[in-house]
Design a protein around this nucleic acid. Structure first.
Length: 902
RNA sequence: GCGGAGAUUGCCGAGCUAGGACAAAGGCGAUGGAUUCAGGGUCCAUUUCCGCAGGGAUUCGUGGGUUCAAAUCCCACUCUCCGCACCA
């Protein structure tokens, strides 16, 4: 379909407001949502899948008589928009290039610099891209009610988020606690992936070390380790003799660690008092006690110790650390080596040193260490470890760690997985927030309720129900607020901004009554809690408000009561363990009954040309590019028919071109449609019946959200049928005439632009096919007898073909003998168990063919006779048909005629 | 490791929840034919092997089992993919 035609209908639909529903008590309602896009960039092929499925379903539900609400908003919470804006302010070339690329598709080259300049204000980024996305969605023909659009940054919406958190708080679901985060020392602020240099390509995560305290004569040394289970194998401590060390007072102990370690430690623990620096030379040679053991160990200076990793003190376990083992060898350290972990495979430090020749060449050191670590962790058992002997490594590690901590012989110490700096160069370390706010998703009553919700929901496909259950079970406490980013401030602690996933869990409800709630907000500059309690929970309004407010509150409640209950939400698998889990949990916590989520559809991943969509692969194709290069309808058709909803969908040229081929055939068909008189006769009757059978299948498939099979039925199968009409010598226009209106209606959810155009051209130029209902009561229009006849005919043809293929003579004539009265009588008699004598000879032949005999025979003689010329033209041989009138050795049976080639 | 999904004929991909007409849908590719046809488009046919009569043989990751009957159920094994959190 031409771009101009698609644009025409896009504008016509918008002008006539046909997708802006209002309360209609005569129709059942259907409320379908998709996630609101995060507006920091334009959307690509992959994003479009979920939204397109949403629209197809919205349009389908409209077709089958529902009052459908399909809304959209935009997500602006969180840090990315801020971070991108800041990077543009700082002139970051990568970011500017990225946005230049986005803009090149939409803007004149001369305007681009100005727009990028405006992005120094983050709000402009959000505004710009939400506009772009709205346009993309309209171009794709989405039947969205844009009058209900809002963003997560809208003040009226934030009133709802605050109300939500007050609800959670009143149910005891808000908690405060400690939480480790990535932190920039210079900026004195938390940092996210976007703030870290190369944070997207080389991820930085937080690792938990156990900082073990070794008691010496004058003070303690604290050594951080990832493998506390090897504690009993410690033979010495390493420090760096060139680094700076500090002594601090902590928990009534004097503790020594590197100066860098002290910086981190002080951000992770309370009550730390700096005492002074310590000369590492004075530490070396001192003896320190290993916890749980009496034997003291030496401190040895070693230049490999990084003072900026952990505490700058490392304990040495040459029995299980290849590095320590090799260092012992090189430096001729004679301490006796202790083994504390045993594995069945007998893999050991020594065996790996030998295997990789590490004594001479350490290039494989990392690999060997990894191998040993894995083997010991998964298959190791502790030995020589006092009371912990016999435990497996995973359990032993936890036990030793917990016992050390409870006896004040260790503290948790967090470190980053790699050394990281922010984009501006400030050091990133781990800090522990002492007053982090959490949503507590763990209470039993909440989990139970969530399970009930999940059990009563519909899932497409069904397998996600179990995954969803598991996701709910995993949820514990979730940090729900941050120190920075765009979003809503916590109502009970203004220093915190509600985190971007937690502010988007019940937002769909605001689509139902956005206008009214916004009116209230605009008048009062807030939405009082009792009004929201009234609108959303049906409680009494306690305070006095003027008529305007009351009016709006009443109609907000009416809208909410009518629409809410999100009947179907469509998303992608990555949302299961976060967004969808929160979506269900928050609803379960606050709402009940029909206001709880009704259904969930989860669409699979989209890849592009066989690879994951990513900028580095260069296979990102924007929605705009698709609309320009192909067309909205082709994209929609591909999304619908290209793969089953849950399967991976590959956007690639080969498959696209085959879709285009079929689509072009359709366009050609409808462009050439002349609206002849309806056809009469066998093949037209067959086509009509077959069409309604396809339509029936289509409706069935759509009801179970099996969109791909639905498309195949109503699009591909019907077109194949039309080809069959042509092959029978029929006229396509005549065949189409009686079913065209229903066909366009049924196809309109998938390819709305084309259908709208042809509806106006061929059916009715006063109405929109997009809002036409379809008659689903079509059973009476399906004549299964005639459909069976055609199937029979085709089978006879292929049987003849098969025989011709095998025999080596040149065929001239085929004589088809169909069953007659003798065979009918035999079957009747055989079934009734009262065979007359003359028929007995037919039994062996009958038994042989029993499985293929049609129990509900059609009039084969008349079918073949009527289509004699057709068969002759297809097979290029003469056809004769006779009705059997005698008992033969080899009989024709219903569905199994005798064929003789001459 | 934990949790989940999967392994189908040249390729992609249905079918397998309720085992029987499954040599296994559909698409792509390939081959042949038709079309006043340019090796392009469209249409038709063929595409595991054998067969001069609609038949037979061997197939659905590997190895067992249940059954009159298994791609479909059960067990074991091998391999592949995805998620594991604070990130939108």
């Amino acid at each position: 379909m031409d771009r101009e035609i698609e644009e025409k209908w896009r504008d016509e639909w918008a002008k006539s407001h046909i997708f802006e529903p209002s309360i209609d008590d005569t129709k059942p309602k259907f409320f379908v949502t998709v996630p609101w896009p995060y507006s920091n960039g334009s959307l690509h092929v992959g994003h479009g899948r979920t939204y397109t499925l949403g629209d197809i379903i919205a349009r389908y539900k409209r077709l089958t008589g529902f009052n459908v609400l399909f809304p959209m908003g935009f997500h602006e919470s969180g840090t990315p928009i801020l971070a991108f804006s800041e990077r543009i302010r700082n002139g970051d070339p990568g970011t500017i290039k990225l946005y230049r690329n986005y803009l090149m598709e939409y803007e004149n080259p001369s305007d681009i610099d100005g727009i990028i300049e405006s992005f120094k204000n983050p709000q402009n980024i959000a505004d710009y891209f939400s506009r772009v996305i709205v346009k993309d969605f309209m171009d794709l023909g989405y039947s969205i009610d844009w009058t209900r659009k809002f963003t997560s940054a809208d003040p009226f919406y934030q009133e709802i988020v605050k109300w939500q958190f007050m609800q959670l708080e009143s149910k005891g679901l808000i908690k405060k606690g400690k939480y480790p985060i990535l932190y920039s020392i210079n900026d004195e602020n938390a940092v996210g992936e976007d703030d870290i240099k190369d944070g997207d390509t080389d991820k930085v995560t937080i690792e938990e070390f156990t900082g073990v305290l070794f008691k010496g004569d004058k003070y303690y040394l604290i050594a951080a380790s990832l493998r506390p289970e090897t504690l009993f194998g410690v033979t010495n401590l390493w420090i760096n003799s060139d680094a700076q060390y500090a002594m601090v007072r902590y928990n009534n102990m004097d503790v020594v660690m590197s100066a860098d370690g002290y910086t981190k430690f002080s951000l992770q623990h309370d009550g730390i008092e700096y005492i002074g620096s310590v000369n590492p030379e004075e530490i070396i040679g001192e003896k320190f006690n290993v916890p749980f053991q009496d034997t003291p160990v030496d401190v040895i200076g070693a230049d490999f110790v990084d003072p900026d990793n952990g505490t700058g003190v490392v304990y040495s376990v040459p029995g299980h650390s290849i590095f320590d083992y090799l260092y012992y060898g090189r430096n001729n350290i004679k301490n006796s080596i202790k083994k504390v972990v045993e594995v069945k495979s007998k893999m050991s430090v020594e065996s790996l040193v030998k295997k990789y020749g590490l004594e001479h060449n350490e290039s494989k050191l990392k690999e060997a260490t990894q191998e040993l670590y894995k083997e010991e962790f998964y298959n190791g058992v502790l030995i020589n470890s006092g009371p912990y002997s016999g435990m497996n490594v995973a359990a032993g590690r936890e036990a030793i760690k917990n016992d050390l901590i409870s006896k004040n012989m260790a503290v948790i110490f967090y470190e980053t997985t790699r050394k990281a700096v922010t984009r501006s160069g400030s050091r990133v370390i781990v800090a522990v927030l002492k007053d982090q706010w959490f949503i507590d998703y763990s209470p039993e009553w909440l989990k139970n309720k969530a399970h009930e919700v999940i059990n009563s929901m519909r899932f497409y496909p069904e397998l996600y129900r179990k995954l969803m259950m598991d996701a709910i079970d995993w949820l514990k406490e979730r940090p729900c607020a941050r120190k920075r980013g765009i979003g809503t401030r916590l109502p009970f602690d203004e220093n915190w901004v509600i985190e971007s996933l937690s502010d988007s869990t019940i937002y769909m409800l605001a689509y139902t009554n956005k206008k009214e709630l916004k009116n209230i907000y605009d008048r009062l500059h807030s939405i009082p809690g009792d009004i929201l309690d009234y609108v959303l929970l049906g409680k009494e309004i306690r305070n006095r408000y003027d008529d305007y407010i009351m009016e709006n509150a009443r109609s907000a409640k009416k809208e909410f009561d009518y629409w809410y209950g999100n009947d179907l939400r469509i998303t992608a698998p990555p949302h299961i363990s976060n967004h969808l889990a929160f979506f269900i949990m928050n609803h379960a916590a606050i709402f009940s009954g029909s206001k709880l989520p009704g259904g969930l559809m989860i669409s699979g991943l989209v890849i592009s040309n066989g690879a994951k969509i990513s900028k580095s692969k260069g296979n990102v194709i924007s929605l705009l590019e698709i609309i320009n290069r192909y067309s909205a309808d082709i994209y929609r058709l591909f999304m619908a028919a290209g793969a089953d909803i849950s399967s991976l969908l590959d956007w690639n040229e080969k498959d696209i071109s085959s879709v285009i081929k079929r689509y072009s055939y359709f366009i050609g068909l409808l462009d050439g449609y002349s609206g002849d008189n309806p056809g009469d006769g066998y093949i037209y009757d067959w086509f009509r019946s077959s069409f309604y059978k396809n339509l029936k299948n289509y409706l069935g498939y759509m009801e179970s959200m099996n969109i791909r099979d639905a498309c195949i039925s109503i699009f591909y199968n019907v077109m194949n049928d039309l080809k069959n009409v042509e092959n029978h010598g029929g006229n396509i226009n005549s065949a189409l005439k009686p079913i065209l209106a229903d066909w366009l209606k049924a196809l309109s959810p998938v390819i709305p632009f084309s259908c709208e155009e042809y509806w106006h051209r061929h059916i009715d130029n006063k109405t929109f096919v997009s809002v036409q209902p379809i008659d689903t009561n079509i059973e009476s229009r399906i004549d299964s007898g005639i459909i069976k006849s055609e199937t029979y005919l085709n089978r006879v043809i292929s049987d003849i073909r098969e025989i011709i293929k095998i025999i080596r003579i040149k065929p001239e004539k085929a004589v088809i003998t169909v069953y007659g009265t003798k065979q009918e009588d035999f079957i009747k008699g055989y079934m009734a168990n009262s065979l007359e004598r003359e028929y007995k000879s037919m039994i062996p032949d009958y038994m042989k063919n029993k499985n293929r005999i049609d129990p509900e025979p059609v009039d084969e003689y008349s079918i073949i006779s009527k289509n004699k010329e057709y068969i002759e033209s297809v097979l290029k041989i003469e056809i004769a048909v006779v009705k059997s009138s005698e008992i033969l050795k080899k009989n024709p049976w219903p569905g199994r005629p005798l064929i003789e080639i001459q």
